[in-house]
Amino acid sequence: MYMDKKILKSFFLSVFLFAIMSCDNNNNGKTEEDNLKNKEDKITRNQDDAKLFVTATENYIRLINYNNYLKTKDSLTVETKFFLQSLNNEIQNRLSNLKKVSKDELILLPSKDEVLFLDKIDSVHKSEKDYLIKLDEMLDKQLSVMENLIKKSNNIKMNVLANETEDFLKAQKENVKKIISKR
């Protein structure tokens, strides 16, 4: 059947104008459910980020405490103690960076670690290697938190921080492994 081109043209023009008129700039073609889901997703992601930050902070505090604890042990060589001192300083820096970011992102971080396990460890005599293996495990734990953060977080600041920390932790793990291999 012959369709009049003029009718088609006017129809398409009208539909085009209708689309322009009814276009919602904030909507971008999404439904109400999509928007709500999107909002909830963002909130959940922010909450997850906050949890990971809290865990990372706790891990840092434990690492610092553990390092401080190890420094008092006679079984550790002077070089290892130097290394631990330097590692502690680096961790302190990173913790303060973490705190800065958390302030911007409105995340409340713990100021101390509630887990009080350190006194119990000393009851059994342990070699330097044992302590360093424990340290390596703790670094592993923190590394996994950072990897999670890299994977899940959409926040640029957090991502940058996590990436940088990941590199740092990997490097420190290498150092620890080197020391362990020498022992």
Binding site: I43, N46, Q47, D49, A50, K51, V54, E105, L106, I107, L108
Partner: peptide
């Protein structure tokens, strides 16, 4: 923290 994330 969760509430802050929501409020933010």
């Amino acid at each position: 923290n969760n509430t802050f994330a929501r409020l933010k």
